[in-house]
Design a protein around this nucleic acid. Structure first.
Lengths: 248, 248
DNA sequence: CAACATTGTGTATTAAGTACACGAAGCTGG
DNA sequence: CCAGCTTCGTGTACTTAATACACAATGTTG
């Protein structure tokens, strides 16, 4: 691997979402500060997946690289949700402690570009080599300690996700290639924090001609097996309408 | 004025839109490269309103500052539409020429944060002191020479605007406090490049209880005077519904 | 006061949103 | 092997919104 020079004052943070057919989860990295002898853990918390960009890569590449490192996957759905340049990013007493130990030499005027990433949970096995990476339920984040302004970034990303999901068919990025309508409904319910009537939800899906039923059915479930469906981006692109409905 | 230190590799570019009751316009700054004697203009083109950020301000402040400088207005509608970190930003032969003359000492790895700004044209008189700032019809941009990647940024901003305008009542930022329904319709037609049936448009507006008719009518027009309306953000916030319609 | 320009209005049809309940399929355990 | 369990998959009636379409009313100007 080539050794790249980093741009010291620009970083990329990825808010990576996954769905386990029950709830929405987010990928967080554990951060531990040990004493000099590398024995006792002084403090620990969690951060988003992020890093500085290299001199010779653009923002999207940096985000892709970070995600590839964590998940082993290329071609992950990735979209910017904002750039953040608060002045007080590392000014809390807590962060100052970290800062003294670890971040020596970092510029104190950092711009962070936030990326929203959506992952098909069934395709990924986390790379736990030297970093502790794990999924956490989105509902748990409010009670967790996150580094820097990462809790703020997380909620920004969640809001962006909830906005987008109503307008573009990006939720399918969180599902495997084949899925059942109940799984799709649970996903939307988890994303938006609501619940839908099953018949109305399916009526709605029936209008989306890009959600296509397959011949396959579920196997080995202790109940009536469900039919599998498929999301077709090509059909979506061809059939999308653009309703002008500035919501009332 | 305090002399601020700039952050050399981070800049903010504002795509400022205005509406003259006929068409959508964008604010551009003329850039001229003169010879040593400051007589002959060697080359000229246009740029977005942009500048580097200062060490002691955040991104939003930088954008506000830039707009205040150009228009004299505070409280302009401002929203990020993306961060851009292409490597080839100043690599065209044309830009290299500029670069040699003017941009000496700038880092070559620049991140630009794009801001979308919407201005009520009737409130602004451009400050033409030392810079040549003017409105240009959006339809004209395709034929113009813009600096750097500014043409790309402009179209990114236009797309973001067209997307947002369908979902949030931000178009009103482009109108004066009082406006007629024909003006509103023309605005939406200009924004989206379509045309609407008058009766259907007004039926739609009638559902938006936050567009409120006033007692006042137009005066001094050579035809039946139109009624004025008002946009109420408070009513909007109270009555907004959130329809889940992942468009088909 | 005639000509002009623009405002402001209504109806019929189609499409989509919402509220609501039960039989069918396949597995499990006794 | 069948009774019970769990989840699947479906239809109808009502309300609301979208679309297509044409003409009389108002105020100014010459």
């Amino acid at each position: 691997m080539i050794s790249h020079k980093i741009v010291p004052n620009i970083s990329v943070d990825c808010v990576v979402f996954g769905f386990d057919f029950e709830k929405l989860n987010v990928l967080l990295v554990e951060r531990e500060l040990k004493d000099e002898k590398n024995e006792k853990i002084l403090i620990s918390d969690h951060t988003l997946a992020g890093y500085h960009i290299f001199e010779d890569e653009d923002l999207d590449s940096a985000a892709s690289r970070i995600l590839k490192g964590l998940t082993g996957l290329d071609n992950i759905f990735l979209e910017q949700f904002g750039a953040y340049g608060q002045l007080d990013r590392v000014s809390s007493p807590r962060e100052k402690l970290w800062f003294e130990h670890i971040n020596k030499g970092f510029a104190d005027r950092i711009i962070t570009v936030g990326y929203l990433a959506l992952i098909d949970n069934t395709k990924v096995t986390l790379r736990l080599k030297d970093r502790n990476v794990a999924w956490f339920p989105v509902s748990m984040v409010s009670e967790m300690e996150l580094a820097f302004d990462h809790k703020f970034l997380f909620y920004e990303a969640l809001q962006a996700l909830q906005r987008k999901v109503k307008v573009e068919p990006i939720a399918f990025e969180l599902l495997p290639d084949y899925f059942t309508l109940s799984q799709l409904q649970k996903l939307y319910e988890a994303l938006l924090g609501t619940s839908f009537d099953k018949r109305n939800f399916r009526k709605k899906v029936a209008q989306m001609h890009y959600v296509i039923p397959l011949k396959k059915k579920q196997q080995g479930v202790a109940h009536k097996p469900a039919q599998y469906y498929l999301f077709s981006r090509e059909v979506y692109e061809k059939t999308r309408k653009s309703r002008i409905s500035f919501i009332i």
